[in-house]
Design a binder for these strands. Sequence first.
DNA 1: GATGATGTGTATCATAATGTAACAAATAGT
DNA 2: ACTATTTGTTACATTATGATACACATCATC
Lengths: 227, 227
Amino acid sequence: MYVTLSETFATDQCPSTREVPRQPANDRHLTRATRAGETLFAEGDAANHLYEVVTGAVRLARVTITGRRQVIAFGFPGDVVGFPHNRRYHTDCDVIQAAELRAHPRSILDTPADNPILHRYLVNAAMAEISGMQDHFLMLGRKSASEKTASFLSVLLMRIGTISNGVGHVHLPMCRGDIADFLGLTTETVSRTISQFRADGILGLTTAQDITVFDPLALRRLSELEE
Amino acid sequence: MYVTLSETFATDQCPSTREVPRQPANDRHLTRATRAGETLFAEGDAANHLYEVVTGAVRLARVTITGRRQVIAFGFPGDVVGFPHNRRYHTDCDVIQAAELRAHPRSILDTPADNPILHRYLVNAAMAEISGMQDHFLMLGRKSASEKTASFLSVLLMRIGTISNGVGHVHLPMCRGDIADFLGLTTETVSRTISQFRADGILGLTTAQDITVFDPLALRRLSELEE
DNA sequence: GATGATGTGTATCATAATGTAACAAATAGT
DNA sequence: ACTATTTGTTACATTATGATACACATCATC
């Protein structure tokens, strides 16, 4: 699955899906190293591969004719990105943190017999993806700015952060603009909200990208729908 | 695919996906008739079937612990609903207009060999679903109330309405509350916005559910991101 | 036809989030 | 090291949307 940064921790999905999936046994894979800023594919491109993120981070986004952008999802280790429709990609995909990617031919989706194990793995990833996107709908449609931001940080902490002695640390691989476009907010609102969390003593910033979460539970509480 | 009521007409997907898909040849299907108000499945239920909507309309929704609701999608003829994750449904599914449904065993997703044609059909539906949901993200995250409403009506008109002599007609199978929860608005805002469209001469209401679209193009123009 | 339940439309007011702007901090380029 | 450029933060004014309230339909049931 590729994380849609919603209430992953609140769902009933089994723990194994949180871990980097074991690589299918007989995969004739080719692993590719990429750098931040590199574009993996763009909306409308012929979809020849699906990519499994091994390390690093990628960003999936769509842009409208008028220039407004929506970040669909961030891809972290274990996520699969690049699900095609009519053999084409429907988002842009950019690397935001140097990433290793495992490329799987798109044809595996069409011809299961070629590699049953990998096929099943990709179908499962697609189902997880749909489920995760449904979570994200709730966030976009029915949460306030602070709920969205708390939710985002909370899931990010769970996903790519560390917690020791009840204190969390997480490095944000994306800029404020990416977060805003992911949550359906403006950069100013994201910034303001994070500042408020800091004023409330919930978290602290060493740099703008490095966050120490003093009270992960408070963050989680805020991310559930308030009241 | 099941429509997420976004800019379907604006994407580059091939026309065939707009039509009711031909039924897989060797499907041992069971068709089921349902009435408005009936619940097909609820969030958390074991997912034994995927349902292909043949006639009528269904509503997919999730509700939070605090009672806020997000309508994930409406399912119309040709759409497939009930994609599972970890063998469970992750939304509620209710019939909103008497519907005929074709039930396909969930196991088809796991064991392609059992019915390769149906399997491929379902996988394709899942890909379309992901693509459609990505459209919907743009709507929820980056559109104003009037853009959302125009977009919704415009897609609905294309999908289940009729146009003759440049004038469109569409019957809304869902109530204002459903529309609001789908678009991330309140019923009041939906009502206000539709009233505004009426005042602008874009559309007219015979009943609250029956809309005549005098100017489908204007509606479509409004649904693109404004300016 | 009365009755109530449900859904819808309109008005008013409150407020959360945005837009704008100015500034600070970090990063890249020379 | 110094400037240019991007990125992030903060303050204030504005506005779109939400909340509340109530009137008006429509429909089913008695």
